[in-house]
Design a protein around this nucleic acid. Structure first.
Length: 478
RNA sequence: CGGGAAGUGGCUCAGUCUGGUAGAGCACCUGGUUCGGGACCAGGGGGUCGCAGGUUCAAAUCCUGUCUUCCCGACCA
C-alpha cells in the first residue's frame, strides 16, 4: 500500500492535480480499454453513498426501481429522429453474437428512453396507469473522443428516471420536482451549491422539449453540469405509439420525462472541495468519517495505545464510519498524510500526553484546524464537528462561487472577464443559437443555463444587441 | 478523430542518440529498534523494458505497425 504519492499543486496544473488526487486517494484506475476506468473500492464507496441517499429520495417521491437491458435493437433507436441524430455517432454497436453476424445490430445503451418506451407501450392503456414513475440504476456506454476519469468515460454508472404522465403540466411538474431533488442532494449532501436552470435550445437533450440542469462551479472557475432533467413532451410516445384513454374515453399520447445523474458527480466532488494535500470529502458522503491514529509513545506497551484507540472508536458510536489506524509499520506522520490524501473528514490523534490529560486531538480535514477535546462528551462533539464541517464546506464553496460570478453587459467586458479571472458570467442572452455558437467559438464559453430564479430584466445581448428579458449564466464548461 | 509528448519492478525515473542481454530512489517482505507531521539499521523478493512483427550473431536501444495515457483542438453526462 503506497503511502507516498506526489500531488501536483492546483496552481501549477489543475488537470494534473485532479488526476493526482484520484490516484492518491485510490478512487480509480485506468482499464485496458480506452476511456474506461476501474472504480476502486474507495471510489465506489462514494458512489454507494450517493446511490443510497438519492435512491431514498426517489422512493420518497413515489418512484420505483426497475432494470431494463443493456442491449437495444438498432431499429428502436432509429424511431425518434432527433434522438438518433444526437446519439448515433457515440454509440457502440454489437454486430456479432454466438459466433455469427447478427441479423439486426444491437446498440449498447447510451441512455434507455427507447427500450423503456417500447415497454411502456404495453404497460400503459388507461389514465389509471398514470403516472408511471420508474428509475433504474445502470451502466451506459458513450463512445467519447476525449475522456477524463469520472467526468467523461466511455462507460459510466448513472441513474435514469423515466416517467409517463397524462398531461403536459404533470410532466413539467415531475421534471421540476426531480431537478429540485438534485439541487437538494447536491447542496445538502455533496456540499456543492448549484444553479438550477433551463438549458438553451442548443444545449438541450436530443429528443427533449426542454432540458433543465443544475450547474456547479469547480475550483478553476469552470462549470460542471451535475444533473439534468428533461421534459420529453410526446416525442417518445409518438415514436413508440404509447397512448392512454382519458376519463372521457379519448385516446391520448402520453407525456414523458427523464432525468439523471452519473458517476460524474464524483468528479464534481473532487474538483469542488479537494486541495493540494488531496481529497476532501463532505462528511455525509464519506464512508469513513473519522480516522483514529494512536501514537504509541516511548516506554509504553505498544498494544496499549491501539487498545485505547479502539475503545475511543466504540465511544463515538459511528460504527464502520470510524477507522483505527493500527498499522505498525507507519509512523504517525505518515498516517496523517495517508488519511489526508484519502479525504477522511476528521482525524483523532491519541497519544500518551492525551491519555494523561483525558483528551484527544481533533483535526479537521477541510481547514486543517487542530485542537484538543476532553475525552468526556466526545461522541457529541464529533457529531457536531461533522455537521459543522458539512455546513462550512457548503458555505465555503458558495462564497467561492459568488466571488467568481460577474455581471457583464458589454461584449468587451464579457471577453475580458471570461479570459481573466474566468468563472460564471451573468449576461443577457438573446436565445439565438447562431449567436450562441459564435460566442462559444470566440470565447470558449457556453450558455450553462438560464437560472429558474433569474428575475425579469430588460437588456441586450452583449454580442448581437438583440433584446433579452433575463440574464443567463455563461461559463467555460467541463 | 487530427496535432504534440510519453509508456522500463507498485510509484518516480536513469539507461535508448552510439545495439552486447537491466539499474537507482521510494514502496514491498523478514528481524530489530522506533513512533506528537512522510522513522532507522540489517537482510531479502520482485521487471518477457506496453504489445506484435522486422533488421541483426545479438534489441529496452534501430525499423514498421498497433494499444494505452497525458496535453491542445473538433464532439459530449
Amino acid at each position: 500500500m503506497s503511502t507516498e504519492t506526489k500531488i501536483t499543486p492546483r496552481a501549477q496544473d489543475y488537470n494534473q492535480w485532479y488526476l493526482d488526487v484520484i490516484a492518491a486517494a485510490q478512487l480509480a484506475d485506468y482499464a485496458p480499454v480506452k476511456g474506461c476506468m476501474v472504480i476502486r473500492p474507495d471510489g465506489y464507496a462514494i458512489w454507494e453513498n450517493i446511490q443510497r441517499v438519492l435512491d431514498g429520495m426517489f422512493k420518497d417521491t413515489g418512484h420505483q426501481n426497475a432494470y431494463f437491458p443493456l442491449l437495444i435493437p438498432e431499429s428502436f433507436f432509429k424511431k425518434e429522429a432527433q434522438h438518433v441524430e444526437g446519439f448515433a455517432p457515440e454509440c457502440a454497436v454489437v454486430t456479432h453474437g454466438g459466433g455469427e453476424k447478427l441479423e439486426e445490430p444491437l446498440y449498447l445503451r447510451p441512455t434507455s428512453e427507447t427500450i423503456i418506451w417500447s415497454m411502456f407501450r404495453s404497460w400503459i392503456s388507461s389514465h389509471r396507469d398514470l403516472p408511471l414513475l420508474i428509475n433504474q440504476w445502470a451502466n451506459v456506454v458513450r463512445w467519447e473522443m476525449r475522456t477524463r476519469l469520472f467526468l467523461r468515460t466511455t462507460e459510466f454508472l448513472w441513474q435514469e428516471g423515466h416517467t409517463a404522465h397524462a398531461s403536459d403540466a404533470e410532466a413539467e411538474e415531475e421534471c421540476r420536482r426531480m431537478l429540485e431533488v438534485y439541487r437538494v442532494f447536491a447542496e445538502e449532501h455533496m456540499a456543492i451549491p448549484v444553479i438550477p436552470g433551463r438549458k438553451s435550445e442548443k444545449e438541450k437533450f436530443a429528443g427533449a422539449l426542454r432540458t433543465y440542469s443544475i450547474e456547479a462551479m469547480m475550483q478553476d472557475g469552470r462549470a460542471l453540469q451535475a444533473g439534468t432533467s428533461h421534459h420529453l413532451g410526446q416525442n417518445f410516445a409518438k415514436a413508440f405509439d404509447v397512448t392512454f384513454q382519458d376519463e372521457k374515453g379519448q385516446r391520448q399520447l402520453v407525456w414523458a420525462t427523464s432525468w439523471g445523474v452519473s458517476t460524474r458527480l464524483i468528479g464534481a466532488l473532487i474538483m469542488a472541495h479537494s486541495d493540494d494535500k488531496g481529497l476532501v470529502l463532505p462528511p455525509r458522503l464519506a464512508s469513513r468519517q473519522v480516522a483514529i491514529v494512536p501514537i504509541p509513545g516511548k516506554q509504553a506497551d505498544p498494544e496499549r495505545m491501539t487498545g485505547e484507540a479502539r475503545r475511543l472508536a466504540d465511544e463515538l458510536g459511528l460504527g464502520r464510519a470510524v477507522v483505527v489506524d493500527d498499522r505498525p509499520n507507519l509512523s504517525p506522520g505518515a498516517k496523517y498524510h495517508y488519511w489526508e490524501q484519502h479525504g477522511v473528514p476528521l482525524r483523532l490523534e491519541l497519544g500518551p500526553r492525551d491519555l494523561e490529560k483525558q483528551q484527544v486531538v481533533l483535526v479537521r480535514r477541510d481547514t486543517g484546524e487542530k485542537r484538543s477535546l476532553p475525552r468526556g462528551g466526545l461522541r457529541e462533539a464529533v457529531r457536531q464537528e461533522l455537521e459543522a464541517m458539512q455546513r462550512e464546506m457548503f458555505e465555503k464553496a458558495r462564497a467561492f462561487r459568488e466571488s467568481r460570478t460577474y455581471s457583464v453587459d458589454t461584449e468587451e467586458q464579457f471577453r475580458k472577464t471570461i479570459e481573466e479571472p474566468g468563472g460564471f458570467l451573468r449576461a443577457h442572452y438573446c436565445g439565438d443559437t447562431e449567436c450562441e455558437v459564435r460566442i462559444q467559438n470566440e470565447t470558449k464559453a457556453t450558455v450553462r443555463c438560464i437560472p429558474l430564479d433569474a428575475p425579469a430584466e430588460k437588456g441586450r445581448c452583449p454580442f448581437c444587441g438583440k433584446e433579452s428579458g433575463r440574464r443567463a449564466i455563461f461559463a467555460k464548461a467541463y
